[in-house]
């Protein structure tokens, strides 16, 4: 399952859980106050403590699992083994140093902006984003991605850059690795 689908399901479940909690409390809210609040309060404090602890444990676990390994490639130097594509954003067109790369071998997109900030987003054949980085004047962001499927891929600008922003698109081809005999 791709990241977007996981995120969508988690969000629906999370919002649904919040909604159910609110509905439960709203239904209970109309009931008369409980005369002796002491046991109620003690119960609420225990619940609050466990609720807090559960969220802390969950947060630490998610942070650890999503940050190791760090999801962004090292920016120190060009990868010696990757296929290098220099990508420069202009108002309102992409300049790519090559438009054909091989599947199965890492590709490094060295992305920058010539004039203003742009967003370099790679769209797969299912029209979903595969990866992205910003294209900023004065900086080069190194985006590494290994394509597994041959075909035509699209690049769209995801940082608003003026009147022609929505038309700033490019395409490139991913071809099968003939030597390896696999995509």
């Amino acid at each position: 399952m791709i990241v977007q689908e996981k995120v969508w399901i988690i969000t629906l479940l999370g919002v649904g859980l919040v909604a159910l909690t609110f509905l439960f409390v709203i239904v209970q809210a109309g009931k008369p106050p409980i005369s002796d609040l002491a046991p109620e309060k003690a119960h609420a404090h225990v619940l609050q403590r466990w609720w807090f602890l559960a969220l802390v444990v969950l947060g630490v676990a998610i942070a650890f699992s999503t940050l190791r390994p760090f999801p962004i490639a090292s920016q120190q130097a060009q990868s010696p083994t990757a296929q290098i594509v220099n990508a420069i954003g202009h108002q309102w067109a992409w300049e790519l140093s090559r438009r054909r790369v091989t599947a199965g071998i890492p590709v490094e997109f060295d992305v920058t902006g010539a004039d203003v900030n742009h967003g370099f987003a790679i769209y797969g054949q299912d029209s979903r984003i595969l990866a992205q980085t910003q294209a900023m004047p004065g900086y080069t962001n190194r985006l590494r991605y290994t394509f597994t499927q041959p075909g035509t891929y699209h690049v769209m600008c995801l940082e608003y850059c003026g009147l022609g922003h929505h038309g700033m698109m490019a395409t490139f081809e991913v071809v099968a690795d003939a030597q390896r005999g696999k995509p």
Partner: peptide, 24 residues
């Protein structure tokens, strides 16, 4: 409700590996 439910998708998007496909 709006505050609590609204920060669910916001917090998820605050994860770098999610932001890579959801940003903007």
């Amino acid at each position: 409700f709006g505050w609590a439910a609204g920060i669910v998708p916001a917090i998820i998007d605050g994860t770098i590996s999610v932001n890579e496909v959801m940003h903007n």
